[in-house]
């Protein structure tokens, strides 16, 4: 069994989801290589080489991958696929964009967002917004898999794998990258943070959302949001937590003015400790909260900030 893991990175460093996907790949029981597609990506490749258990890092460092577009990325991975029995990626926006394209080109039914490896061909994955866990066995000779990162403890960073170059594919050219609008934040990244404070529609306004950020800052945490808060424009899209947003499992999740729709719970109910602050004692979020506080946001959050900064 040989597995290849597509790295998630920003050229300068690896995203933690990569180490989780490597952990999942190692559970398949064979050797694991990591693939870095990027441009000026030597630092990211070096970081991948330090992931424990990795045999080899293969790097395609080329202008074609200044942005990782699905078409050339899939073509390159398909070109390497002969050498592997399993192709994996973390279930990030990139992984979800590229891997099904790879799977279809190889005539493989992908297994999306696994949370456990039962056997090299058998995996557990959530369905119905996490309201059910399906155990599925793949009959395809090759496996194509995306990995839900919070479900796997990342491997350590004490390895020393060899790094080797891979030739760049031709750019099919049908997709052109025009622009990226990055959400700048000084806070920890949502998917990697130990503490997340998330706000919902109950916050009421853009301005008031600052309360959520302040609470996050006092705790050194990241800021998350419900879909309603994003739709209302309180915060950019990449803060959305849920079935169709980010799936996270921090040590502490504080939901402020969030009702707890199943689509939201799908993204955070595996958090270690959940706190809910909501003025409606009937809000479904209280059914998953370890600690619930029935209170108005505008009283409870400032009081909490004051007490925690004291």
């Amino acid at each position: 069994m040989r597995a290849l893991v597509l790295a998630e990175h920003d050229n300068r460093s690896l995203k933690p989801a990569t180490a989780a996907a490597v952990a999942a790949a190692l559970q398949l029981g064979g050797s694991v290589d990591v693939l870095v597609l990027g441009c000026n990506a030597a630092p990211a490749a070096a970081a991948a080489a330090r992931l424990a258990g990795v045999a080899r890092v293969r790097v395609c460092d080329d202008a074609v991958f200044a942005e990782v577009l699905a078409e050339p990325a899939a073509d390159l991975i398909v070109g390497l696929a002969d050498q592997y029995d399993a192709l994996l990626a973390p279930a990030t926006a990139t992984g979800k964009n590229v891997m099904p394209r790879v799977a279809a080109l190889l005539d493989v039914q992908q297994v999306s967002e696994i949370v456990a490896v039962v056997a090299p061909d058998t995996f557990v994955r959530p369905v119905y917004a996490g309201n059910a866990l399906a155990t599925v066995q793949s009959s395809d000779a090759k496996k194509v898999i995306t990995v839900r990162a919070p479900a796997f403890a990342p491997v350590a960073e004490d390895g020393a794998a060899a790094v080797e170059a891979v030739a760049a594919p031709a750019d099919p050219g049908a997709s052109r990258f025009l622009e990226r609008r990055v959400t700048e934040s000084v806070r920890p990244e949502l998917t990697a943070a130990r503490v997340v404070v998330a706000g919902g529609r109950g916050i009421g306004s853009d301005g008031a959302f600052a309360l959520v950020s302040q609470l996050a800052d006092v705790l050194g945490g990241a800021v998350g949001a419900s879909r309603a808060a994003v739709d209302a424009g309180f915060i950019p899209n990449d803060a959305q937590v849920g079935q169709t947003g980010k799936i996270i499992a921090p040590d502490l999740y504080i939901a402020v003015g969030i009702s707890g729709a199943i689509q939201h719970l799908a993204g955070m109910k595996d958090s270690k400790v959940i706190v809910a602050i909501n003025k409606d004692s009937e809000a479904p979020i209280f059914q998953v909260a370890d600690y619930g506080l029935v209170a108005d946001v505008f009283e409870a959050v400032p009081a909490l900030i004051e007490r925690l900064s004291a």
Binding site: V127, A132, Q137, V288, Y291
Partner: peptide
């Protein structure tokens, strides 16, 4: 291509508590 071997409910979270105040929460 995928055989469904089993489908089950995710582990339920154990019931939490309602705290009376911010002080108690902290």
């Amino acid at each position: 291509r995928l055989a469904l071997l089993k489908i089950e409910a995710p582990p339920a979270r154990k019931a939490g508590v309602i705290v009376a105040s911010v002080a108690e929460l902290v």
